[in-house]
């Protein structure tokens, strides 16, 4: 039982981080209609900034720089590239982001080399144990940070003008612009938010038990795609729930791999996608997605 609870705790904390990444996908998608294939390299950029700066300027200032840097990167990608597409549609935008991903990842790989850059987080390698259930302290902190970030997001979207404007723009951009809401600005805000969330997730993913920042960190953003799809493409809540589901399912699949051996080795990698496909079979628009309205 404690074993189960340990895996559950692991899964939930990991799921919350996945949620942070998935929310970034949702926000970029709803505010500018872009499937952000470069989300992973933005995440890596944020984490990389923290890793190289924590020594000279201290961890917390470095985190601030990392978050701002990733946010700025997002804004620039949107302003310089996405908004200047010759043929703006989701398909070309997605491929554009692949191009961006190639550029960012190549350059970061070159800079990082074969080092693993420590993130320099003050929480060390401790583990919390409550009644036999163990969880790395950093993971508990990560879960806490994620919950706080989600609360802030909720406040932003429900209580502030900017947030309401973003939701309005996502729901009906055409009408929102008639309210004086500049779609270019909500788009920029969306990219900035997504970048900031990615940087936070990057720092959390690079801290213990992970060793630090390495180029493979960028791939971890892909793990959030099933969470995003499963939650419904345009739902922030869905992304968080999706993250939790994927996190828990993955942790359990790994934890009970021995018992599930009939299904083949390496189950942890395929299970998130299997869950995603099953959910889509039952609910094609995901758990929390708006059903596409059929209008004539």
């Amino acid at each position: 039982m404690t074993y189960f609870l340990t895996q559950l705790a692991n899964g939930l904390s990991y799921g919350l981080i996945l949620g942070l990444i998935a929310v970034g996908f949702v926000i970029v998608f709803t505010s500018t209609g872009v499937l952000n294939f470069a989300h992973g390299s933005v995440l890596l950029t944020g984490a990389y900034l923290v890793a190289i700066l924590h020594d000279p300027i201290g961890f917390w200032p470095a985190v601030v720089v990392g978050i701002l840097g990733a946010a700025l990167l997002g804004v620039l990608i949107n302003a310089v590239l996405v908004r200047n597409l010759a043929e703006p549609n989701p398909g070309t935008a997605a491929i554009l982001m692949l191009g961006v991903d190639i550029l960012l990842l190549t350059e970061l790989t070159r800079r990082i080399g074969n080092r693993v850059l420590p993130i320099g987080a003050p929480w060390g390698a401790d583990v919390i144990a409550i009644g036999g259930v163990t969880l790395p302290t950093s993971r508990a902190i990560a879960a806490g940070v994620a919950v706080v970030v989600f609360a802030l997001l909720w406040y932003l979207f429900a209580r502030t003008d900017t947030g309401v404007a973003m939701r309005a723009a996502a729901a009906d951009g055409d009408t929102a612009s008639l309210m004086g809401i500049r779609l270019s600005r909500t788009g920029a805000t969306g990219w900035a938010l997504a970048g900031a969330l990615a940087a936070i997730a990057g720092v959390l993913l690079a801290s213990f038990p992970a060793p630090g920042v390495a180029p493979t960190l960028a791939i971890s953003a892909f793990a959030a795609i099933p969470a995003w799809v499963l939650g419904g493409f345009d739902s922030v809540v869905g992304a968080i729930v999706g993250g939790l589901i994927i996190g828990v399912v993955t942790a359990l699949a790994v934890g009970y791999e021995a018992e599930l051996h009939v299904l083949g080795r390496g189950l942890g990698e395929v299970v998130p996608y299997a869950v995603m496909i099953i959910v889509l079979l039952v609910r094609p628009s995901g758990l929390f997605g708006r059903k596409e309205a059929v209008r004539v």
């Binding site: 989701p90 795609i225 799809v229 493409f233 395929v270 299997a274 995603m276 496909i277 628009s285």
Partner: peptide, 13 residues
């Protein structure tokens, strides 16, 4: 694009 993301699962499968 929704179908596009759903089909990512096939690659891992």
């Amino acid at each position: 694009i929704y179908l596009g993301l759903a089909t990512v699962g096939l690659v891992f499968l």
